[in-house]
């Protein structure tokens, strides 16, 4: 049986005035139903680009190489009709900053009703207004909002409530895969916890696959079984959340994990950890390991060796030639 989602040697370049911008540079990944995967990495490393490619939502300037398989079917070669069906019922995306994308002049309920009417789903028996309305109400309750919010306009809702509406929207047609791009960024701690709890419940109740994107490792570790860390368009580490968070095998993951301290950990008290140097410019990537200009443990060899993922532990890989030494010490 084929996996829910499989990426094979995925590459994505943007054509731009600066020439080709390699945003994703060879990513391999599998996600099964009921699994949760977190994707971390700093701004510009290619997280959103990768997510958009799964539903062929990239702009025309994007050049895609490799394969994107949903249930074994290549998204890149699907007909438009098939793709539309897949976009609602197969897989759906909660976009980055999407809560600002709600239509300000339409009631929330009407926005939720649209995909249900068009594509069926959310348990609506038919596309009659009464059935759709009932389905919208159930959908709102499922994301922890009262049914009466169907009548609300977006500006009458708080940030956390809008984000719940966006999640409801993504769930409208019962997708088997949900991709959530920064679903809690800009929400405060308690509302963030509410949204994360909701996502976790949805996964355990309905066995959907969840890919969650964030620059905050600790947010991902709370919700996801596995964590992938991206740097300069490549996956540089992949493994069980607790291991990537607490025993990272790649120096970059280590810096990322240290940037979000654990409250109560004496090592980080009065000692904020940063990562010196600038994020890489995708149009001008350094040779060898792309992290070497900022890596605290780089060697001469790193400047010329193109480092691919290698095994750190069973089920845990990292792209670093000094993997043994790095993985040895905890954060």
């Amino acid at each position: 049986m084929s996996a829910l989602l499989e990426l094979r040697d995925l590459t994505i370049d943007y054509r731009s005035r600066r020439g080709l911008v390699p945003a994703v540079r060879g990513v391999n990944l599998t996600l099964e139903a009921g699994q949760t995967l977190g994707m971390a990495g700093e701004s510009g490393c290619g997280k959103s680009t990768l997510a958009m490619s799964v539903l062929r939502l990239l702009p025309k300037t994007a050049v895609i190489g490799g394969e994107v398989l949903l249930d074994g079917e290549d998204v890149r070669t699907m007909s438009w009709g098939r793709l539309r069906a897949v976009r609602w019922a197969g897989a759906s995306v909660v976009f980055q900053g999407a809560m600002h994308a709600l239509n300000p002049v339409l009631r929330v309920g009407d926005q939720l009703a649209e995909p249900i009417t068009l594509h069926g789903g959310a348990g609506a028996k038919s596309s009659s207004p009464a059935d759709v309305e009932r389905a919208v109400g159930e959908l709102l309750e499922r994301v922890g909002l009262p049914r009466r919010h169907a009548k609300a306009y977006p500006h009458e809702l708080s940030g956390g409530q809008k984000q719940r509406v966006m999640i409801a929207m993504a769930l409208a047609c019962g997708p088997r895969l949900v991709i959530a791009d920064e679903p809690t960024t800009a929400l405060d701690v308690m509302v963030q916890a509410q949204v994360l709890k909701l996502l976790a419940e949805l996964v355990s109740e309905s066995g959907i696959g969840l890919m969650m994107i964030s620059h905050d490792l600790s947010v991902l570790a709370q919700t996801c079984q596995r964590l992938a860390v991206m740097y300069a368009g490549r996956m540089v580490e992949l493994g069980p959340s607790a291991q990537v968070m607490h025993e990272p095998a790649h120096p970059y993951s280590k810096a990322l994990a240290a940037a979000f301290p654990t409250v109560g950990d004496p090592a980080s008290r009065m000692a904020p950890q940063g990562l010196p140097g600038d994020p890489p410019d995708p149009t001008n990537l350094p040779g060898g390991c792309p992290f070497h200009p900022r890596c605290p443990v780089s060697t001469v060899e790193c400047e010329s060796t193109d480092v691919l993922l290698r095994q750190a532990d069973p089920g845990h890989q990292a792209a670093c030639i000094r993997i043994e030494e790095v993985a040895g010490e905890p954060v």
């Binding site: 701690v189 904020p272 940063g274």
Partner: peptide
């Protein structure tokens, strides 16, 4: 994330060098 630590370290250093006080408003307990 990677820049966050550097700016926070800067605030600590300014306190040390200039005795600068700060009230930092945040919802980030870390």
């Amino acid at each position: 994330a990677s820049v966050r630590g550097e700016i926070l370290a800067l605030l600590l250093k300014l306190r040390q060098d200039l005795d600068l006080a700060a009230l930092v408003v945040t919802h980030d307990l870390g």
